[in-house]
């Protein structure tokens, strides 16, 4: 009898362990394309993701130890800086762009509004080094981390090496960011045939597919390309977007198409955060588009939407809200 019990307990423990290991750190949602991130060069482990999460929320990454990644990429607002058109960094210095929402990054080949960054691993270097953001050097970040007993232990656990390097620091941050997958909105449930759109949402979806989907392509709700969406140049910023990187005139005023997932929470909108509401964005597309040589081919013809259309389209856009992503405790401030 005792033997039976012990076998039972062992079986139970094995099953428990199986349950715990069963939930993958990252998985490709059904019918989504293959990610572009090469996981073989940075295989995800729970320890590395946890380390990355600690780093993401740690103001140690900034020069005056006051600004963390999460300062401008808050989990509750789809990892963007809510309420600020332009994001601000150390000593209240204001940058020139609206911080982008962070999600589904494993599918992105380039980062930033102008695609200046070519790999997720290298992304964190930009805000760390920018004088208006974190104003720090990666060399100093590594030094500060090395002086921390807590981090020595975390790096040892994650990489089997307590000597901290730039490579390991950046790879750990990537690991956490890679886990930020939003694929559980009402839209996704409808696509998986687990839910149904209301007639209004359904009509909005049809309007979306006709007018918006060329750039905001499903399922990521971005074609990951650079487009000029007809915004007038803000003469206080004179930001010409992609052209700064390629030095090619044909890229003037082109910015990376942002995802629309969780758009309800990721306001304000556009690279300079000029629109506070979805209504203002729709007004731009129906009556504010400025024609210029590089205007997106998808916006050459005027977009005509009745006020009912706009209401229905907005109802559809709100189905892209993914509460299980926004309020996922796994993505929140790490427990000490």
């Amino acid at each position: 009898m005792r033997k039976v019990w012990s076998i039972g307990i062992v079986l139970f423990l094995v099953l428990c362990a199986f349950q715990i290991t069963k939930e993958p750190l990252f998985s490709v949602p059904t019918s989504w394309p293959k990610p572009v991130y090469d996981f073989s060069k940075n295989p995800l482990t729970a320890q590395k993701v946890e380390l990355g999460r600690a780093l993401f929320y740690d103001p140690l990454l900034s020069k005056n130890n006051q600004i963390s990644c999460a300062s401008c990429h808050s989990p509750f607002t789809a990892f963007t800086h809510v309420d600020h058109d332009l994001s601000h960094g150390i000593e209240d210095r204001i940058g020139t762009r609206n911080s982008p929402a962070l999600m589904n990054l494993a599918w992105h080949q380039s980062f930033m509004w102008d695609g200046a960054i070519n790999h997720l691993d290298m992304q964190a270097l930009a805000p760390i080094s920018h004088p208006n953001e974190m104003g720090e050097k990666i060399e100093s970040v590594v030094k500060k981390l090395q002086q921390s007993k807590n981090y020595s232990a975390l790096f040892l656990k994650a990489f089997g090496d307590s000597i901290i390097t730039g490579e390991h620091t950046l790879k750990a941050i990537s690991q956490f960011m890679l886990t930020l997958v939003s694929s559980n909105s009402k839209y996704d449930s409808v696509m998986r045939k687990q839910a149904q759109f209301t007639p209004q949402q359904k009509n909005g979806y049809t309007i979306f597919q006709k007018n918006c989907a060329a750039c905001h392509a499903e399922p990521l709700f971005t074609n990951l390309q650079f487009e000029n969406n007809g915004l007038a140049v803000d003469t206080t910023l004179n930001d010409y977007g992609r052209m700064r990187i390629t030095k090619n005139k044909s890229d003037s005023l082109k910015f990376k198409v942002p995802t629309l997932r969780n758009i309800e929470f990721s306001f304000p909108y556009m690279h300079d955060g000029r629109f506070k509401t979805i209504a203002a964005v729709l007004k731009h597309y129906t009556s504010g588009v400025k024609h210029s040589q590089t205007l997106s081919v998808h916006l050459q013809k005027p977009m005509i939407l009745s006020s009912n259309d706009k209401v229905d389209l907005t109802a559809f856009l709100l189905t892209l809200t993914d509460k299980s992503f926004l309020f996922n405790t796994k993505y929140g401030f790490p427990k000490k």
Partner: peptide, 24 residues
């Protein structure tokens, strides 16, 4: 190599030979 993400040794970005504002 320029588009292959974070690397170590002489290629570690802490060596001061990596552009932060534009990858490369």
């Amino acid at each position: 190599t320029n588009v292959s993400g974070a690397m170590g040794g002489d290629l570690d970005p802490t060596k001061g030979m990596y552009w932060t504002w534009q990858s490369g």
